[in-house]
Amino acid sequence: MTSLYRCRTALSELREHFNALTPARASWSAEVWPERSGLVVYRKSGNRIAEPMRWGIPRTILNGVRNGRPVSTTMWFQRRNPTQSARFENPWRCLIVLDSFACPSGSPGARTRTWFGLDDRPIFAWAGVWAQVEDGKVFCGMLAPSNNVVFRPSMPVILDPDDYDLWLGGRLDRAAPLANRPYGEGRMYREELGEPWGGDTR
């Protein structure tokens, strides 16, 4: 499960890549942990809108029940239950903006970050869903089986620009295959910098 990613970009770069409307100013975390703010693109009135949202949808919204984890930051599309299926109607699908994501390496107590990204794009999109809550907007990302570059059982569902319209506005039966596939390993890089895994999680 992915629990750390980076979004080091500018609103101008986001507007150009996603052809999205953006606020004049916005604040988000360059290093995004659960319940921090990340940049998200969603569809409204035929336009792509980009704005910061908080990472993690309350489980009461996704499942209708409470359990040990108060929010879900990731989920498997193919494991959704009937209650969760309503979250996948196209008004609630979104694109999570990132430049790389991390997985922990090494033994407990000495874990470091291994980063993964795309060779051909400085920023890219992770398929997700979003929700409106009392204090703002929140989001969660889709998981796919990993390819041979990512050494964990799962990885984010990465979308190419040609997929953006289908994920944001297409019928669910046509968009669903996008949420079930690992990304092509030949287009990804892996980078080990020796950074401690925890770092600044506040």
Rank of each mutant, 00 (worst) to 15 (best):
I49R: 06
I49Y: 06
A50C: 12
E51I: 00
P52A: 02
P52Q: 02
M53K: 01
M53F: 04
M53L: 04
R54Y: 00
W55C: 01
W55P: 00
I57C: 02
I57Q: 02
I57A: 02
P58C: 04
R59P: 03
I61A: 02
L62N: 10
N63D: 15
N63P: 02
N63S: 14
R66P: 00
R66Y: 10
P70W: 15
V71S: 07
T73S: 09
T73Q: 08
M75V: 09
W76I: 07
W76H: 12
Q78S: 15
Q78V: 14
R79A: 15
R80G: 10
R80W: 09
N81E: 14
N81G: 15
P82N: 09
P82E: 13
P82H: 12
T83Q: 12
Q84I: 00
S85A: 13
S85Q: 13
R87S: 15
R87W: 15
F88E: 04
F88G: 02
F88C: 01
F88V: 06
E89Q: 12
N90W: 11
P91Q: 05
P91V: 08
P91N: 07
W92F: 15
C94A: 04
L95R: 02
L95Y: 05
I96Q: 08
I96S: 04
V97M: 02
L98P: 03
L98I: 11
L98K: 02
D99C: 03
S100K: 05
F101M: 06
F101H: 10
A102P: 12
C103H: 10
P104D: 14
P104W: 12
P104A: 15
P104Q: 15
S105D: 14
S105Y: 11
S107K: 13
S107I: 12
S107V: 13
A110E: 14
R111V: 01
T112Q: 14
R113D: 02
T114I: 10
W115R: 00
W115A: 00
F116N: 06
F116A: 03
G117E: 02
L118K: 09
D120E: 13
R121W: 05
R121M: 05
R121E: 10
I123C: 03
I123A: 02
